[in-house]
Amino acid sequence: MLIFLNLTDRWHWGTLVDTDGWDGALCPALSISGSIQTELRVGVSEVAIAMPFDLFIEEASVIPLRALLFQSLLLLVAIMLEAMVLRQRMRWGFQPSIKYAATLNLMAVVIGWIVFLGIEPLFPPDLRTQVISYILFGHFYRNPWSGSLGTLIIGSGLVVFFVTFWIKAKGLEVLTWMMGNPLVSATKVPPSQRIRYGPKRSSAAATPPHTLAVLHANAWSFSAILVLLLLRHGLEVGL
């Protein structure tokens, strides 16, 4: 196979394919006349020496570098914004807020990856090629799924927002419990307040402040990510 790859650098396919068709196309040495054939043999031995490196480059030539960089950027922005919100609402110090925000966001991202990598093989082939199209070319293509993709994306975006919020809220509870100062018991409303403000207010106060803080933080980071994604899309279309 590698012989074939290297040969394509020197000759165009058309010249290789002309004689005997399919068999000849894969093994050009078989279908090319005698003198060139010996030349090819020499070439083959040279190729064999350079093989592992060439093979590695050919196989590893497509790497998800941009996904990696863009995800890191989005994570940094989200962590920064959420740390600011948590610091303001939970009255934590600078470092604890950053650490909590980093942990929560990483947790959400990791769960997202696990879910994506887990369900991707289960997609029907047409949906799978749409996903591949978006990842490799940045757009969808025409096939039976293309009509319903818009609703699918908006719907899954909403679902992802609320699932992320739930993961982060639960994650914060578990994390503070692990750290030895659980939030849930600490934030119970004292009974004296309940009497003072009447029974109607108590139901509103039942939402613990950390849930509200996480909701706000999540809304901020999702808006920022959405703006960044739209900016990138706009830049790409503009270029």
Binding site: A25, L65, F70, E236
Partner: peptide, 26 residues
Amino acid sequence: FSRSGFVTRLSDYSDDQARGIALLTF
């Protein structure tokens, strides 16, 4: 792949890798 938001290609690409070439030769 230059318009992709996810992947980068390190080596060159050429039309030769399309499997349709084998199909047409056949």
